[in-house]
Amino acid sequence: MERLLKIELLKILSYNTFIILFGLTIGFYILFLLAGTQINLNIDQFDLKAFLRFPTVWQSVSYYSSWFFPLLSLVVILILGNEFNFRTLRQNIIDGLTRTEFFYGKLLIIVLISLLVTILLFVSAIIIGISFTGLSINFNVAGLKYIFSFFIQTIAYLTFALLISLLVKSVGASIVVFIGYFIFELIIRAYLSIFSLNFANYLPAKVFANLTPATSLSTIIADENIKLMIEKNTQLNTELSFNANLIVAFIYLIIFVLLSYQIIKNKDL
């Protein structure tokens, strides 16, 4: 495993496009996060800072992060597309890497990237939470499940990108298909919602997005009565529960990994 990781890191750590894309994503993430914490709106009955206090901060920062890090799917498409484009996948196999090892190498990079951004999210949430809740308060870990589901969400997006990249090969076309799929699913979901079909909740993009649900608006309502009323009215019976959604996401993730592996295993290179 160490050898495979070493090989993959040799390939990407000197690749400027990877460094720039990864760096920009992290840079903008931190910049917007800092800017977000500085918003100070004084509106009666609303407490905007509630998003940034424990335990809500875990969910808020996970939700915010879920808008940024799917961008890293482009990095995966780029890395794999290059292997086809430069025909280095073929050369790696000729040099003696097995197809399974090549696949594990790419999976390791996906897990490593997901782990790095999850750690960044965790550290950001702790810093923000402590800043707005104070050190004296024992920070609540109840929302930590959102950190885990964010980790799964990132791996799911990246493995989906891996699968598309293996099917399409070309970097440009893979990016179009990847983004196109999310737009396509959005249209399908809108169409299914006309007929109130719950099936829409099981589609991949919806399942992945639901792994990091938006913090309820009721969080920032100061008046307890209004808060209860909003919570009651916004409960959607059609949505999957958090745990059920996590299981479905896992199933998709496993399907993407197995399909990708089968393609690499059987494709003429």
């Binding site: 050898r3 070493k6 090989i7 040799l10 390939k11 000197s14 690749y15 400027n16 290059n82 430069f86 280095t88 050369q91 790696n92 040099d95 003696g96 890497l97």
Partner: peptide, 16 residues
């Protein structure tokens, strides 16, 4: 890999 040096390209082959 066109963006890598000769040494790094051969280093990848050597690791493989």
């Amino acid at each position: 890999y066109p963006y890598l040096s000769l040494y790094k390209n051969l280093r990848i082959s050597a690791e493989i």
